[in-house]
Simulated scan of single mutants.
Amino acid sequence: MDKINLLISVTTVSLFISLFLAFFLVTVKTKNKISNVLFAVFLLIIAVDICEPLFNTMVDGPSNLRMLRNTFAFLQIPVFYLYVLSVCYSDFKLKPKCILHLLPFLVSNLILIPRFYAVDTASKISFIINRKNMIELQFSHILIHVQIVIYIIAVFSVLRKSKKLYLENYAGRNVSSYNWLFQFTIALTILYLIALLKNIFKFSDYPYISEWIKIGLLFFNLFIICWYLYKALNNPGLFRNIDSKLKLVSEIVSEKKNSEQTGIKEKEYTEELVKLQQYMVEEKPFLNPSLTIQDVAKDIKVPVRDLSLLINHQLEQHFYDFVNSYRIARAMDILKDVANSKVTILEILYEVGFNSKSSFNTAFKKHTGNTPTYYRKNL
Rank of each mutant, 00 (worst) to 15 (best):
K3H: 14
I4H: 15
T11R: 03
S14P: 06
S18I: 07
S18M: 08
L19F: 07
F24R: 03
V26F: 07
T27V: 04
T27N: 04
N36L: 04
F39C: 05
V41Y: 11
A47Y: 02
D49C: 03
I50W: 00
C51T: 08
L54R: 00
N56Y: 13
N56R: 14
D60E: 06
G61S: 00
G61V: 00
S63M: 01
L65W: 00
F72H: 11
F72R: 04
Y83I: 11
L85H: 15
V87E: 15
Y89C: 13
P96M: 02
K97F: 05
L100K: 05
H101R: 04
L102E: 04
L112C: 00
I113H: 13
R115M: 04
A122R: 13
I129N: 10
R131G: 07
R131T: 14
R131F: 11
N133F: 09
F139Y: 08
H141Y: 15
I148S: 11
V149Y: 13
V149Q: 12
Y151D: 06
V158R: 15
V158F: 08
Y166T: 02
V175C: 06
V175N: 11
Y178W: 11
W180R: 09
F182I: 06
L188H: 14
L191D: 11
L197G: 03
Y206M: 12
Y208R: 03
I213G: 10
I213C: 05
K214M: 11
G216W: 08
L218G: 13
F223R: 01
Y228C: 04
L229C: 11
K231T: 12
A232P: 08
I242R: 10
I242T: 15
L246N: 09
L248F: 02
K256W: 10
K265H: 11
V274R: 14
L276M: 09
Y279G: 04
V281Q: 06
P285S: 10
F286S: 08
L291Q: 15
I293R: 13
Q294R: 14
Q294D: 12
I300Q: 05
K301G: 01
D306F: 01
S308Y: 08
H318T: 14
F322I: 01
F322G: 01
F322K: 04
N324K: 06
Y326P: 03
R327V: 01
R327F: 02
I334S: 02
V338Y: 12
V343P: 00
L346V: 11
E347R: 07
F354S: 02
N355A: 03
K357T: 00
S358M: 05
S359L: 00
K365I: 02
K365T: 13
G369V: 00
T371N: 04
P372N: 01
